[in-house]
Design a protein around this nucleic acid. Structure first.
Length: 642
DNA sequence: TCACTGTAATTTTTT
DNA sequence: ATTACAGTGA
C-alpha cells in the first residue's frame, strides 16, 4: 500500500495526526472516532515513508486483546509482518525486559509471575503468621496498599510513617515482609513487573541508552489509564530523543480507582516541550441523538479537556427510558424488547454497574429461551484445577516457590497436615530459605514423627521423580504427565458429578493449550517457563457460556472498547449508579464517565432503565432515578412502557 | 479431618 | 439473600 492509499481512508484530523511531523503527538480521540485506526496508520505511515524501521517502534497497550488487534491491523496494512516491532501490554513488555536482563534486575533466572490471586494467598499466609489485627489488615486491604504504593513507584523504604501513625507503620512492616518473601521465593507480582522494570532501566544507564536508541517511536493506547509508574517508565524510555504518540480520551477514564491518573495528560504537556494536540471529534458509531445525550451528560464534569463529538449520521430514534417497578420488571422489559428486536442477538448488550445485577437478566432471558453470554467470572487459567496443575509445574522448575509448594503439598491429600507445614514454616522463619529447603532439612535431621516424615518424603520424591520424568518431554506431554503422576485426576473425581466432568474437560483443554503453545512458539528456548508466564500474563478469555449469536451481558467496565447496535443501560438508580460509595467528587465524576462510556457503546438504539424498588442485601429498598438520567435533556428522551 | 454454626460483607478488575 | 470464612466440637 502506498502512502496516498493509506491516507485516503482518513478524515482530516486523523490525517493530521498520522502525518504530523516527528514531535510528541497527543491524540484526543473521542468514543468511536477511530483511535486504533489512527494509531495503526501512524505506525504504518512511519514505515512506508521510511521515517524509521519497524525495529525502532514500540506500541504499548493495556490489554492483550488490544495488543493483538494492533499488531494484526498493522500487518494487514503493511501486507507483511512488521518484523522487530514490539507491540504488547505494559506488563508484557516489562516482563520481556526483565527476562532478558534478569541478572541486572537482581532476579533469579527462573523467577515466576504472581497473579493477583497468588499474591493475595501469599499475603494471607504472611498475615496469619504475624500479629496484626485481621480487621485492619485483611489480605485484600494489604494487597491494595502494596499495589497502589508500587503503582506510585514507592517501595516500603520510600514511605515514611509519621510518629504515632500505627496503621501506616504496620502496613509498611507488612509491605517489607512481603518484599522479602517475593525476593526469597523468586516471584514477581504484576505491579512489581512495572516497578522493577522501571528501576532496571533507571539504574543501568548503558541498558537504558540501548533501549532509548532502539525505541525511538513509542506509541501508547488508552493513555488516560496510565498510572504513575507507567508514565515514569514511558518518560524514561523516551529520554530526550524518543518520540511519543499517545492516544487518549479523558472522558473515558474509569480506572482511577486502580491507580490510573488522567493528570498524566497534562503532565506530559509540561514534561515535554514540543507536543502537538490533535482532536478526533467526528464519531462514526452512534446516531445524532445518542451522541447529543452523551455530550450533555459528560458536560456536567468539570476540568475536562473539552470536546464535542459530532456525527454526519441522522438523529435517529430518541433515547428510550423505562421506569420499572422492580428489578424483575426491569429484566422482563429488557427481555421482551430484545425478543422483538429483528437484528442479530449479538448486537444487543445489557450493561449494568455491578456483577450482581446480571442474575435477574439471566433469569428473564432464560424464561424467554434466549441464549446469552455473560462476560466476567473466572478465566481459563484462573480455574482451581488449572491453577493446581500450574502450581506443580511451577514447583518443578523452581523448588523455592513457596506459594506453589503450599498450594499443592497436600493436594491431593497425602497426609501432610498443618502441623507438618508449620514445622517447615518455623524453620524458614528461623533459618531462611524456602519451604522446599526446610523440608529437606527436617527430613535430614529427623525432626518429624515417622508417619509425617514418610508422607513428606513421599512428596519430595514425587516431585523429584516427576522432574526427571518430564525433563525431555514436549510441553504438552509434561502437562499430561503431571496430570497423571500427581493423582489430581482421581482427586477431582471425588467431587460432584457435573463438577468432575467440567474439571476433567478443562484439564484436557490445558493439554491442548500446551500443544498449541508449542506449535506457536517453536523457537522458544524454555517452553515450560514461557507457558507459565503466558498463563499468568494472559489468563485467557473470560468464560462465556456460548459462542452462538446471543445477547451480551456485562458490566460497564467490561464494555469499554466495545460497540453494539442496541444497548440497554440498566439499574440507573441513585446508590447503584452512581454507586453508594462514589457519591461525592471526584469519584462521582468517574461514575459519570462510566455512564458516558455506556451511552457511547450504542450505535442505533439506547434504552435507559431504572427501577422504583430493588432487592439488595436481603432487603427491598425503594430507589430514586439516577441523577444521570436528569442530566440528559428531556428532548432527547422518550419514556416507554410495554 | 469433617461438618456445623455464627459473623460479616456484599463496586468496578486491562495485568 | 448469598457467600465466604473463622471457630468449634465430634
Amino acid at each position: 500500500m502506498n502512502s496516498s492509499n493509506l491516507l485516503d481512508t482518513l478524515n482530516n484530523p486523523q490525517r493530521e495526526a498520522v502525518t504530523a511531523p516527528l514531535e510528541h503527538i497527543l491524540v484526543l480521540a473521542g468514543a468511536g472516532s477511530g483511535k486504533t485506526r489512527c494509531l495503526t496508520h501512524r505506525i504504518v505511515w512511519l514505515l512506508e515513508m521510511d521515517k524509521t524501521h519497524s525495529y525502532n517502534i514500540l506500541a504499548v497497550t493495556f490489554t492483550n486483546k488490544a495488543a493483538i488487534e494492533m499488531r494484526s491491523r498493522i500487518d494487514t496494512l503493511l501486507q507483511k509482518p512488521a518484523k522487530g516491532l514490539w507491540a504488547g501490554t505494559f506488563h508484557g513488555i516489562a516482563h520481556r525486559l526483565l527476562r532478558f536482563h534478569w541478572q541486572d534486575a537482581n532476579l533469579p533466572q527462573a523467577f515466576q509471575i504472581l497473579d493477583s490471586d497468588d499474591q493475595r494467598r501469599t499475603l494471607k499466609r504472611l498475615l496469619k503468621a504475624s500479629r496484626f489485627d485481621e480487621k485492619m489488615f485483611s489480605p485484600k486491604k494489604v494487597q491494595n496498599f502494596i499495589n497502589s504504593s508500587k503503582d506510585e513507584g514507592l517501595r516500603a523504604k520510600d514511605i515514611i510513617a509519621d510518629e504515632g501513625d500505627g496503621w501506616l507503620t504496620s502496613m509498611l512492616e507488612i509491605y517489607h515482609a512481603y518484599e522479602e518473601i517475593c525476593l526469597r521465593t523468586g516471584v514477581v507480582d504484576f505491579a512489581e513487573l512495572l516497578l522493577l522494570c522501571y528501576e532496571l532501566l533507571r539504574d543501568h544507564p548503558p541498558l537504558l541508552e540501548h533501549y532509548q536508541q532502539r525505541f525511538q517511536y513509542i506509541h501508547v493506547d488508552e493513555f488516560q489509564d496510565t498510572n504513575t509508574i507507567q508514565y515514569k517508565w514511558l518518560c524514561l524510555l523516551a529520554g530526550t530523543q524518543g518520540k511519543l504518540f499517545v492516544v487518549f480520551d479523558d472522558d473515558q477514564s474509569v480506572y482511577a480507582w486502580r491507580g490510573a491518573r488522567v493528570e498524566n495528560i497534562q503532565q506530559i504537556q509540561t514534561d515535554f516541550s514540543d507536543t502537538r494536540l490533535v482532536r478526533l471529534e467526528q464519531n462514526y458509531r452512534s446516531t445524532g441523538t445518542i451522541l447529543a445525550a452523551a455530550n450533555a451528560l459528560i458536560a456536567h464534569n468539570k476540568g475536562r479537556l473539552g470536546k464535542k463529538l459530532w456525527t454526519q449520521d441522522k438523529a435517529g430514534a430518541p433515547v428510550a427510558l423505562y421506569s420499572a417497578y422492580t428489578e424483575v420488571d426491569e429484566a422482563k422489559f429488557v427481555a421482551e424488547k430484545i425478543q422483538a428486536w429483528q437484528g442479530k442477538r449479538r448486537e444487543v448488550a445489557i450493561l449494568y454497574r455491578t456483577t450482581a445485577q446480571s442474575r435477574q437478566f439471566e433469569e428473564a432471558l432464560l424464561q424467554n429461551s434466549m441464549s446469552y453470554r455473560i462476560y466476567g467470572g473466572l478465566r481459563f487459567y484462573e480455574r482451581l484445577e488449572i491453577k493446581d496443575i500450574l502450581a506443580y509445574l511451577r514447583l518443578l522448575i523452581h523448588r523455592d516457590n513457596d506459594g506453589a509448594f503450599e498450594r499443592i503439598v497436600n493436594t491431593p491429600r497425602r497426609n501432610i497436615g498443618n502441623k507438618t507445614i508449620d514445622t517447615l514454616r518455623d524453620i524458614v522463619r528461623s533459618q531462611g530459605g524456602s519451604l522446599w529447603q526446610a523440608a529437606r532439612t527436617v527430613l535430614d535431621e529427623k525432626q518429624l514423627k515417622a508417619r509425617a516424615a514418610n508422607s513428606l518424603m513421599a512428596f519430595l520424591r514425587l516431585i523429584e521423580q516427576m522432574a526427571a520424568q518430564i525433563k525431555d518431554l514436549p510441553l504438552h506431554e509434561k502437562v499430561e504427565q503431571v496430570k497423571i503422576a500427581t493423582g489430581l485426576i482421581i482427586h477431582y473425581q471425588k467431587e460432584r458429578k457435573e463438577e468432575v466432568e467440567r474439571r476433567l474437560e478443562n484439564l484436557e483443554e490445558l493439554v491442548n493449550a500446551a500443544r498449541q503453545f508449542e506449535q506457536f512458539k517453536r523457537d522458544e528456548p524454555n517452553l515450560l517457563m514461557a507457558f507459565l508466564d503466558h498463563a499468568a500474563l494472559e489468563a485467557g478469555e473470560r468464560q462465556g457460556n456460548s459462542n452462538e449469536d446471543c445477547v451480551q451481558l456485562m458490566t460497564l467496565h467490561a464494555a469499554k472498547g466495545l460497540e453494539f447496535d442496541n444497548v440497554f443501560l440498566c439499574g440507573l438508580e441513585e446508590g447503584l449508579f452512581p454507586h453508594q460509595n462514589s457519591l461525592d467528587e471526584p469519584q462521582l465524576e468517574e461514575e459519570r464517565r462510566l455512564c458516558y462510556v455506556g451511552i457511547t457503546r450504542a450505535r442505533k438504539h439506547l434504552y435507559l432503565c431504572h427501577s422504583k424498588s430493588r432487592y439488595r442485601y436481603g432487603r427491598r429498598d425503594s430507589c430514586t432515578p439516577s441523577r444521570f438520567i436528569g442530566e440528559i435533556p428531556p428532548k432527547f428522551i422518550r419514556a416507554v412502557r410495554l
